[in-house]
Amino acid sequence: MSSPAVPLFRFGIIADPQYAPIVPHVAMDRQYANSLAKVAEAVEVFNSWELSFVMTLGDVIDRSFSSFDDILPIYDRLRHEALFLLGNHDFSVSAAHLAEVAARLRMPSPYYSFSRHGWRFIVLDGNDVSIFAPPEDHPHRVLAAEMLAELQEKGAANAHRWNGALSDGQFAWLGDEIAKAAAAGEKVIVMNHYPVYPAGEHGMWDSERVVALLASQSHVVAYLNGHDHVGNYGKAGACHFVNFKGVVDTENQNAFAIVEVYADRIEIRGFGREDSRTLVY
């Protein structure tokens, strides 16, 4: 039997624009100001395709709440729905603005789900337990400091201040969403800023429990993330884990993708530095 030639639907992906009106970080090859032009180029390409939505996988800005005023109007040029999730750099703002970040990105809440064409998209907030996103003195910030100290003592590769974890409440919600999708006959794609697999220095602090959950559910097809700007790929159980490359890196090369969902596979069509991949399910 031949494979279907027409996708069920398509969506766009951008990761880590990390825009700021500042000079480049030459050693890391991060060209913060150039992200305005790169996102504009991606928007132009996306507008030439029929897409269900465009998701940015976190780190819209590098620092300063006012940077949202420069980059978000570029997303307004999209003829598609622009969706966002929260990255660590999105919280590199003054304490007074911490509670406003999700609303500024027009998100319904810090983590949420939505359905398209019989698929459920589960959008996580990997900054839920972190030392930078919760308000000062919030129990999640206290818990984050404890988790980080414990990981540092073990010499864990991901024991970094710029990573985070899901709260137990959000992890339970993730399990509920996956169960509801199964009951509704929906396949699942999970999206988050942070990688969880393969393990590495950019991984969420509680990656192991997330991977164990996703890999045990046959209807969970893919987990899409940013954060590690060089990109990565792995597979655990039936779930494909795809780390998209960062827009902010390099002076001129862009990195974004169009994801085409078929009845038997997902085709990732990479643009610029982004890799093209076929994920069979």
Rank of each mutant, 00 (worst) to 15 (best):
221 V>W: 00
235 K>R: 13
139 P>R: 07
227 H>G: 01
235 K>Y: 07
219 H>Y: 00
124 L>A: 00
172 A>Y: 12
157 A>W: 07
222 A>H: 03
181 A>F: 05
131 I>N: 06
206 D>G: 00
235 K>N: 00
143 L>P: 10
168 D>T: 15
229 H>Q: 07
195 P>H: 03
234 G>D: 04
210 V>R: 00
160 H>T: 10
132 F>T: 13
174 L>N: 08
114 F>R: 09
208 E>Y: 06
183 A>V: 15
162 W>Q: 02
125 D>Q: 08
222 A>N: 02
209 R>M: 07
160 H>R: 13
125 D>L: 01
204 M>E: 00
196 V>T: 14
211 V>Y: 00
178 I>T: 11
211 V>P: 02
178 I>Y: 05
182 A>H: 05
155 G>K: 07
157 A>L: 14
200 G>K: 02
157 A>H: 01
194 Y>K: 07
151 L>I: 08
131 I>D: 06
176 D>M: 13
183 A>H: 12
134 P>L: 01
188 V>K: 00
145 A>K: 15
143 L>E: 12
177 E>P: 08
187 K>A: 15
142 V>A: 12
215 A>N: 00
164 G>A: 04
232 N>M: 12
158 N>I: 01
211 V>E: 01
126 G>C: 12
137 D>R: 15
202 H>N: 09
189 I>C: 04
121 F>G: 03
208 E>G: 10
170 Q>R: 11
170 Q>E: 14
221 V>S: 02
123 V>P: 00
223 Y>T: 08
180 K>Q: 13
168 D>Y: 05
194 Y>E: 13
150 E>H: 09
168 D>C: 10
175 G>Q: 08
148 L>H: 06
181 A>G: 10
158 N>E: 03
183 A>Q: 11
219 H>S: 03
206 D>Y: 01
191 M>R: 04
120 R>H: 07
151 L>Y: 10
171 F>R: 03
139 P>W: 10
160 H>A: 10
129 V>G: 08
155 G>L: 09
140 H>W: 14
206 D>P: 06
158 N>F: 06
223 Y>G: 05
234 G>C: 03
155 G>R: 01
184 A>F: 09
227 H>T: 07
224 L>E: 00
155 G>I: 08
208 E>A: 15
199 A>H: 14
156 A>M: 06
